[in-house]
Simulated assay, not measured.
Amino acid sequence: MVQLGIDVGKSKIDLCLLADGSKGRKKTKVLKNTPSVAAAVLEWLAAKKVDITCLQVVLEPTGTYHEYLAYGLHEQGVRVVLASPARVRDFARGMGILTKTDTVDAFVLACYGELRSPEVWTPPPPEISELRALLRRRDALLKDAMREDNRLEKILSTRPSPLVEASVRKMIAVLYAELHAVEQFINSHIDNHPGLKRDLGYLISIKGVGPQIGPNMLAALRSHNFSSAEQAAAWFGLVPKEKRSGSSVHYRARLSKSGPAELRAKLFIGAMMAVKYNRQLKATYGRLLAAGKCKMSALGAVMRKLVHQCYAVLKHQCCYDENYGLAA
Rank of each mutant, 00 (worst) to 15 (best):
I186M: 03
M1I: 08
M217F: 11
K100D: 08
L131N: 04
E153Q: 06
E130N: 13
L306A: 07
A312I: 02
P126V: 11
M95G: 11
G259Y: 08
E153Y: 03
V302I: 06
A290I: 00
A328N: 07
S157T: 00
F268L: 11
S258N: 14
A327V: 14
L69Q: 05
I190Q: 02
V307F: 01
L203C: 10
S247G: 15
S223I: 07
G210Y: 02
E153H: 03
E262W: 11
F91P: 01
A38L: 03
A261D: 01
G214L: 04
Y71F: 14
K197R: 13
L31R: 08
Y65R: 10
Y176F: 09
S205K: 10
D105I: 12
A92Q: 02
R136Q: 09
K26E: 15
A232D: 02
V182R: 05
K207F: 03
G325Y: 04
S228T: 14
N225F: 00
K282R: 15
G63R: 08
L45A: 12
P61Q: 11
R116M: 15
A301Q: 07
C111Y: 02
H189G: 13
C54F: 09
A19I: 12
S11M: 07
A271D: 05
H316W: 06
D105Y: 10
A133C: 09
L45D: 10
K32V: 04
Q309L: 15
L152K: 01
P61H: 13
C54M: 11
A106Q: 13
N225H: 13
F107I: 04
M1F: 11
P125S: 14
V275C: 05
E60M: 11
K315C: 00
G325Q: 08
Q212G: 05
A253C: 05
G292S: 12
N225Q: 08
H66V: 14
T53C: 01
P160C: 02
L134G: 05
K48M: 15
A283M: 10
D149P: 01
C318V: 14
E127R: 10
A177S: 12
L134V: 09
M303A: 03
S245D: 07
S157F: 03
Q76C: 13
V50I: 15
E127A: 12
D149N: 03
A133I: 00
F185Q: 12
A110V: 11
S84C: 10
L200Q: 10
L115F: 06
T103S: 12
T103G: 01
P160V: 01
L255Y: 00
M146W: 00
L238E: 03
K27D: 13
L59R: 14
L31Y: 08
C111G: 10
D51P: 08
L289T: 07
G259V: 02
A312V: 02
S223L: 06
L299M: 03
H74F: 12
Y277A: 09
D7C: 09
L131V: 07
G21I: 07
P162S: 07
R198Y: 00
I13H: 13
P124W: 01
A232R: 04
I6E: 14
A133W: 00
S157D: 07
R244Q: 15
V50M: 05
R222L: 13
R147C: 03
R147H: 05
G325S: 05
A110K: 07
V30C: 08
R279L: 12
Y202C: 08
Y176V: 04
E43H: 13
I269Q: 02
L255D: 05
E178V: 08
K276Y: 02
L73G: 02
A86M: 09
W121F: 15
M1D: 11
V81K: 09
A40G: 04
K266F: 01
